[in-house]
């Protein structure tokens, strides 16, 4: 069972005061909460790395929580920040890959974007961008195959993927 808001807040006050036992319990509970938070946001095999990254951020920035404010929104903001950071790295990686090679290989980072509330995000992209991202990044087609299927030139497919991914990352970043 995951701890509730009052328990988290009580443990956090003790942790800020340097109570090692409370810190241990809190970090463990935060780890469980984060696992649930990332469950529908990143592929299962990446969850633990992301949870550990957030735990380190949580620990380093623990002084920024104000005891007069709720704990879980504070934790969610940190988790979301790290997640967006993770997406930004994926976006950069994807852009480089597009510039370097036409062939699309299965990279684990691509799966991240494929899982990020795709339908909702795709709905906010121009149809041509959503179409090629879906074909290349999710369907696994090469840029050339996507170009043949959609009637777009190969360079236009690349540009549309590039712009679409950039917009998706920015949509996720802006959403509260």
């Amino acid at each position: 069972m995951v701890a509730d808001e009052p328990t988290f807040a009580r443990l956090m006050v003790s942790t800020q005061d340097g109570d090692k036992a409370a810190g241990n319990v809190l970090l463990t509970e935060v780890g469980v909460w984060l696992e649930r938070y990332f469950l529908r946001r990143v592929p299962p095999h990446q969850i633990d790395d992301l949870v550990q990254e957030v735990l380190i951020s949580f620990y380093t920035k623990r002084g920024t929580w104000d005891p007069s404010r709720p704990f879980l929104p504070w934790l969610a903001a940190i988790a979301r920040y790290r997640w967006v950071d993770h997406l930004r790295k994926v976006y950069k990686h994807d852009s480089q890959e597009l510039m370097e090679d036409d062939a699309v290989e299965d990279s684990e980072e691509e799966v991240v974007l494929a899982r990020v509330s795709l339908d909702r995000l795709f709905g906010q992209l121009p149809e041509k961008q959503a179409e090629v991202i879906e074909m290349v990044k999710i369907g696994g087609l090469s840029v050339r195959e996507a170009a043949e299927k959609t009637g777009q030139s190969e360079s236009l497919v690349k540009v549309n993927i590039h712009r679409g991914l950039k917009k998706m990352a920015s949509l996720v970043e802006k959403a509260d």
């Binding site: 800020q16 810190g23 970090l27 780890g31 633990d48 550990q52 735990l55 380190i56 002084g63 104000d66």
Partner: peptide, 26 residues
């Protein structure tokens, strides 16, 4: 792999808890 991950997270938490000191609130 799952048990390795769990162990590495438990080690990380133990190390951070051990180093815990009072922090100045922002």
């Amino acid at each position: 792999n799952t048990s390795n991950n769990a162990r590495s997270r438990a080690d990380l938490i133990a190390a951070m808890a051990e180093d815990l000191t009072p922090v100045r609130r922002v």
